[in-house]
Design a binder for these strands. Sequence first.
DNA 1: TTATCTAATGACACCGGTTACCATATAAGA
DNA 2: TCTTATATGGTAACCGGTGTCATTAGATAA
Lengths: 374, 374
Amino acid sequence: MTRPSQPRTPLSSGQDPGDLMTDDRISADPVEDFLKRRKKATINDVASLAQVSKKTVSRVINKSPSVRGETRDLVNDIIARVGFRPDPQARGLAFRRSFLIGLIYDNPNAQYIVNMQMGALDGLRGSGNELVVHPCDWKAEGFLDEIRDFVELQRLSGVIILPPVAEDQGLLDLLDELDVPFIRVTARNNDVQPPIAGLQVVSRDRVGCEQAGEHIVGLGHRRIGFIAGNDLYPSAHERRAGFEKGLANHGLTFSTVEPGNYSFDSGYEAAQKMLNRPDRPTAIIGCNDDMAAGAYKAAYELGLRIPDDLTILGFDDAPIATRINPTLTTVRLPTRDMAKMASEKLTSADTRPGASFVFDSALIIRGSSGPAPK
Amino acid sequence: MTRPSQPRTPLSSGQDPGDLMTDDRISADPVEDFLKRRKKATINDVASLAQVSKKTVSRVINKSPSVRGETRDLVNDIIARVGFRPDPQARGLAFRRSFLIGLIYDNPNAQYIVNMQMGALDGLRGSGNELVVHPCDWKAEGFLDEIRDFVELQRLSGVIILPPVAEDQGLLDLLDELDVPFIRVTARNNDVQPPIAGLQVVSRDRVGCEQAGEHIVGLGHRRIGFIAGNDLYPSAHERRAGFEKGLANHGLTFSTVEPGNYSFDSGYEAAQKMLNRPDRPTAIIGCNDDMAAGAYKAAYELGLRIPDDLTILGFDDAPIATRINPTLTTVRLPTRDMAKMASEKLTSADTRPGASFVFDSALIIRGSSGPAPK
DNA sequence: TTATCTAATGACACCGGTTACCATATAAGA
DNA sequence: TCTTATATGGTAACCGGTGTCATTAGATAA
């Protein structure tokens, strides 16, 4: 039975008669007086109002177990009433770390970036942390130094790294050295990479791609072309492996493969080449939506109708997927959820180092995939 | 001839013999010794190495004029050699403000957001400020309170507000009250709005739209349809006014106007309506690219070829503009430059309150606009 | 009953910079 | 030469929290 944290204006040894003059008491309530001053409360204000030392208030803020329940309730009550919120700057200075999470990336896909930012913020909400975005030039000369400066100077509380930067072993090592918690987002389960200290969010691009492969074979396609992704990206390999698996499940392989670099133009060119072959494929899979959209263009120029003459598939479920005609059959990754998980795990103390969090991709069937022409 | 900032270990009244033992002196150089410790330098380290008080170092950092040139050079030299960088947290605590710039927006256009972020970071580079992104729900219940919390708690150094939130008078007043420097990005010159305290970056959407209107008339079109933008956005009015001006310059007006809300679907529906009219327009202008892309879809479904049967124009030069077939004639705004200007002006002390910085839009002719069919 | 231990709390220095104010040195004016 | 103005540097307090360690009170053991 907890004593109802009665406003035992400290030192008050609860006098009964007081109840009768509630109104007067309120006007004499130190907290009310304080509120009239309309000043942002500091820890000192809370301490004096609660008649405890600021250290005790600090303990309450930081949920130290060594505070008597009664005291804790009293302090929390005052905190709530005066609307006290500890200053992140001062706290950060004392803690030797800011309450900032850095988001590091070098990725041209705007929708992806915005999704990740939104997701990261979802996960940060209420944690008292803010998100500092840090796009960078991964391949530039002083990249690592620049990141070091950023992390050290801002004393970041944590770092989220997006692909493809997330594959930079040097960066991971650096973050390790700087002793800052970090989490990387990647498409590859690091069964190959040397184990790293940080956390990771892993997307299983393969899953949805395998579904897509099966889907396409199920539609009767036998000559299937593939526009590969940027070779530096693990996602490119994972997706390809997934699609191939889907085909292989039915004893098929790609009839033709062209390189691409995830850009619209590269997809366009690759598709042109494929579609000009004597054994033109009846279906083309792009390693991402932008390249698939490029294939649309190539098909359009050759007078091919989609999906009647040509089936096209992509990956990402980018905005463009629903803005082209016909809408694009593609594979979706729960990017926002992944980012949310990333920031949540990064800021929750009870995450064990090295942990991985896995998300599956899934096929989304739209108008660009149809039965193979006879 | 500047005296080579010789390690005149202050108090040294320059003794000649010293020069002879340069080498010995270097090995005994306190700075070298310090560097061997591999510890991040603090202002105290710099002060003791330079044999001055930390206050003097502080003066140098903050470019106080009341430091002797000689002293300043010496201190700067030490700062450079030990790689000292003042801690933003400590500095912020003393200054009562962080070195964070908040970017506030509620805008679904990913490419626009990313461009603005990049631009803002361009302008912040080297200023010692970081960018904290803050997407929000402009129309939500406690919107203003939430912003207040954000700005106050983080003690932001400045705020950049993007459209359409930038039109919220309540928000502008709040920022005024909080006394935080801010700059809004808007399409409307505030000849209508009451004057505000903050700065603004103004885009002249009209300019490029007028060009576009003339372009379309020049191609012989006489029946021109317009898909309007979200009525709440000043950009919608400005663009429309610009297009109308372009037509009016040649004695024309829109033959039909349909409402839209900047979304792909709304553009699709609006175009459907227009194209099913008996006096079908030969050209359709979308108030943004997404809606123009929607018009593509409508045209496609009706078997209309672009630009042979139908000319379509958009606004934004979004990524989709070059990913659809044919590529979209549109109007471009220098968004990144605008954001760069915004953050630069926000962080430069010598900007007078209330200043506006104006950017022009410009027509980009691509494949979706052609001669009017006979 | 007294000694010992543990839980709860407070005093004080400190995080790394800043401002306010004072002290000193130098230059100018009488 | 002596006083007054001006420029410069030093000292202490402060920004708003936290760590360390000492202290107090209550509980347990002897």
